[in-house]
């Protein structure tokens, strides 16, 4: 059973054919070759696969691609404007919000969603907002600093 689907990914219309069991993350990585979205745990705990679908952050390892037929999806590849990083990406860079970087795409996407819905988050808001994202390197302190700076960057339209 193969089902034709289409969606808008990072502003571009895309289409493909998937089996019902194909996960959104598999469609993004294997058909669209957008490998910035990572699979960490594949059990919806780690958040490395977070993308924004229809305006909210979702774990793309816990959504079927067919469920997202017709959706607007933004992945980590869709944030930067050419060579200019998105304020949240810039803030993670400036504040060393990563070490190995595996969790970073999901962290950044969750952070962008958090700040979109709460433009001026407190440290507690940030920690709660990143409940669904695990980082095994940093101990989170610099991630919280980065998200705070990224929020300011998003408010002012400047890099973090």
């Amino acid at each position: 059973m193969s089902i034709p689907i289409s969606m808008t990914v990072n502003g571009q219309p895309v289409s493909g054919s998937v089996e019902p069991r194909t996960l959104l993350v598999e469609f993004l990585r294997e058909q669209l070759h957008l490998t910035g979205t990572h699979v960490g745990c594949d059990t919806s705990q780690c958040g490395a696969c977070v993308v924004i679908a229809d305006g909210v952050s979702v774990k793309s390892c816990t959504a079927l691609a067919v469920q997202c037929d017709g959706s607007q999806v933004t992945t980590i590849e869709g944030l930067a404007n050419g060579a200019t990083l998105h304020p949240m990406q810039q803030a993670f860079n400036d504040h060393h919000g990563l070490q190995c970087g595996f969790c970073t795409p999901g962290m950044v996407m969750s952070a962008v969603d958090l700040v979109t819905h709460a433009p001026n988050p407190t440290d507690e808001d940030i920690r709660k907002g990143l409940d669904g994202n695990l980082c095994r390197c940093t101990g989170y302190q610099n991630i919280v600093r980065a998200v705070k700076a990224g929020a300011e960057g998003m408010r002012t339209g400047m890099g973090g």
Binding site: S44, G47, V56, S57, V58, K59, S110, G129, D131, G132
Partner: peptide, 9 residues
């Protein structure tokens, strides 16, 4: 419930 992404779906 859960985390933000679980709550979104």
């Amino acid at each position: 419930i859960g985390d933000p992404q679980v709550r979104n779906r």
